[in-house]
Nucleic acid binder design. Structure first.
Lengths: 207, 207
DNA sequence: ACCCGGCCGACACCAAAGTATGATGGAGTC
DNA sequence: GACTCCATCATACTTTGGTGTCGGCCGGGT
């Protein structure tokens, strides 16, 4: 696996340089930016990664950048690192999912531990995302009718009931169902149910 | 539904009194304590509730109390309210699951909003917990063999395979399986699979 | 000693699921 | 027009699932 990438966005040149040296020494790739915009222009890697982010930046501030990243759908773990941190700012960052919130001057070991944690989190997120994407792709490869059938059978309806629900015959349901099992690569019906749950189909129960 | 309960733990008498008045005025029940120990001695209610917690307390400090509550298994949302808050303290509290972290002097509206959020979170947590407990109770009512069978069928094995796995005949598996469906009150096999997932049985997949 | 419940199994029967083959018609593409 | 894909249905057959009743074995408790 390619080595993880640590992004750094900070407007202080001396911080950027010392961070870069520190991070490279630990064996991580680094990508350094001095503004939010230049970071946003850079593509996300497919390896585990994290972002060390200052709050005070020339253009967008750190918290706004965090929000922007979230709304873009990318979920890269963020370690804040700021010279002027107060409590409300910390709360906002943490509630928005920040991994850590450190203040300058920072302790090297503390920062490195935080980055390690963030990378680990990223690794898990990527793994989970790839699993989810795989399922979504398979689901997308289903035809409209097959999707209908999958939703209903995953909800626990019998083939006969599904047929009645959709206004088609039971035998046709079976045909679609077979196709669904193939295309979703489900080894068993239990498998399919779990997939449906992960895809957000079929509300679990409503007793 | 009984009205929510707001617990307050603060060593400052004037804060306690003003909070009590404010909270009661909003229609919540209140339980006021001046130390962590006296709070711990008080039983948890079964209605939605939350805790407004100062960090500086005579005995245990707020963060330690938070940790203690978590390890006790109770999950009551916590709104911190402290006079001397710094960034590391805030990070620690938020990472440990705190709902909010406010500093004195506090704004009434902000506090009330935080409490409302915490109560809502508690409501959801209670609902989820009661659903989970229901399932656990049902699962606990199964005999040992029935549990075995449930695990395996929820994993997607056929009755025949389950029988082979357990060294019993297929017909016996069917009997156990029928019992499981009854006792778990599963309307369909899909239902049972979802229950198994919520109970943490049957690892989803490992392609 | 007795009963109860868990556990195992068998026979029978029916419902449901899964598969194979074949066929029709429509939509869209090359 | 030939081709592909989707959707639909049918017939026939096999496997699996679900239920019922019956019986036997064993261990714990009244």
């Amino acid at each position: 696996m390619a080595s993880p990438v640590v992004f750094v966005v900070d407007d202080d040149i001396s911080v950027r340089e010392s961070l870069e040296a520190l991070l490279r020494h630990e064996g991580w790739q680094t990508e350094i930016f001095e503004s939010a915009q230049s970071f946003l222009a850079c593509p996300r890697p497919l390896t585990p990664s994290c972002l060390i982010l200052d709050v005070n930046l020339p253009d967008l501030n750190g918290l706004e950048l965090q929000e922007r990243i979230r709304s873009d759908g990318a979920q890269i773990p963020i370690v804040f690192l700021t010279g002027y941190g107060d409590v409300p700012m910390t709360v906002r960052a943490m509630k928005a999912g920040a991994c850590e919130f450190l203040t300058k001057p920072f302790d090297n070991d503390v920062l490195l531990a935080a980055v390690r944690g963030a990378i680990e989190r990223s690794r898990e997120a990527l793994a989970d995302e790839s699993r989810t994407r795989l399922l979504q792709d398979r689901f997308a490869s289903l035809s409209g009718r097959e999707r209908d059938v999958m939703k209903l059978v995953a909800k626990g309806l019998l083939n006969k009931q599904v047929g009645h629900e959709l206004g088609i015959s039971e035998i046709t349901v079976k045909a679609h169902r077979g196709k669904v099992m193939q295309k979703m690569q489900a080894r068993s019906f239990a498998d399919l149910v779990n997939m449906a749950a992960k895809l957000g189909l079929a509300p679990p129960r409503r007793d």
